[in-house]
């Protein structure tokens, strides 16, 4: 883990850290803390994220999620509270997004059944494969923000792979944290501006190398759309799920999905060279 401390501005000393988890780079900036405290928070955060990453990693054959994928089609599998809660939330979001978000996007309909009493999960089909890739970053950010708040942090920004960002409080010299969305066709050029204050944002679209990777659960195929979908709102988890669902959904159904998510703002961002077109989804 990279750790950096700066007290160049004595009014606002800062601790920052960066590490790799969940196939991406996680960065945190906490303002107004002593060096030791900052280092302690950085280690706590890393431990928490890495533990979650390990347990939600379907490619790690020893992870609870891999066990579900391997066995739950033939028998009910008991899972820990955190994974159970994650699966519950996935199901809530699947229904709330008219099926455009799914923890098993290659399978149409509900991919699993949960038993609240026993905390057991049963896959609906042998073809069902739970992948929390479109959920875990938001879920982790939600927990990081909760953790930092409980530790008394009042100004912080956490960046999960540039696509999921959450804030606590505001920038020391502004009313929010100014985050520019980069135009993917013009490196370094801003396509859209976001002000985060005790809020989060999530961005979905093609990968930086231009690949389509988000699957429409209704068709089981990758969505080939060139615009990005930006969602802003209080919860990083909701923002994460919603941006994925809106990207997967046809443009005509996006406004309908948004009606269920009061307090969240979604924007379509379309870049063609240096030209940028933005449209709020409502």
């Amino acid at each position: 883990m990279q750790f950096h401390y700066s007290s160049k501005n004595p009014l606002y000393p800062m601790a920052s850290c960066a590490f790799h988890a969940m196939h991406t780079r996680v960065e945190m900036l906490v303002v107004g803390v002593e060096r030791d405290r900052g280092e302690e928070l950085a280690h706590m955060l890393r431990e928490r994220v890495c533990d979650m990453a390990r347990r939600f990693n379907r490619f790690d054959m020893t992870s609870p999620l891999a066990v579900v994928n391997a066995r739950a089609a033939v028998e009910a599998v008991s899972v820990d509270d955190e994974l159970y809660m994650a699966l519950q939330l996935c199901e809530v979001f699947r229904k709330g997004t008219y099926g455009y978000f799914s923890a098993a996007p290659t399978l149409k309909g509900a991919p699993f059944v949960l038993c609240d009493q026993s905390h057991e999960v049963r896959l609906q089909s042998e073809d069902a494969l739970i992948d929390l890739g479109g959920f875990a970053k938001g879920f982790a950010l939600e927990q990081i923000v909760t953790l930092l708040r409980s530790e008394g942090v009042g100004m912080a920004l956490v960046n999960f792979g540039n696509s999921s960002i959450a804030s606590i409080g505001h920038h020391p010299y502004g009313e929010g944290w100014g985050v520019g969305v980069e135009n993917p066709e013009c490196r370094g050029m801003q396509a859209f501006e976001v002000r985060l204050c005790d809020g989060a944002m999530s961005l979905s679209g093609r990968t930086p190398s231009g690949e389509y990777h988000i699957i429409n659960p209704h068709t089981g195929v990758k969505v080939a759309q060139d615009e990005m979908i930006l969602v802003e709102g209080r919860s990083p988890l909701v923002a994460e799920v919603l941006s994925t669902a809106l990207y997967a959904a046809p443009a005509s159904e996006r406004a309908t999905i948004m009606q269920s998510f009061g307090g969240y703002v979604a924007t379509e961002i379309y870049c063609r060279g240096a030209n940028v077109k933005c449209r709020r989804i409502e």
Binding site: S6, L11, E27, V31, I165, G178, P184, T207, P208
Partner: peptide
């Protein structure tokens, strides 16, 4: 230069501006 680095530099200098780093995912 990551977004966090840009923010650190801003705060060190006592200013605020947008940090352009958000994208569809880290590469």
């Amino acid at each position: 230069g990551s977004g966090i680095h840009q923010l650190i530099e801003q705060i060190e200098q006592g200013v605020m501006s947008n940090s352009v780093f958000a994208g569809t995912s880290w590469a």
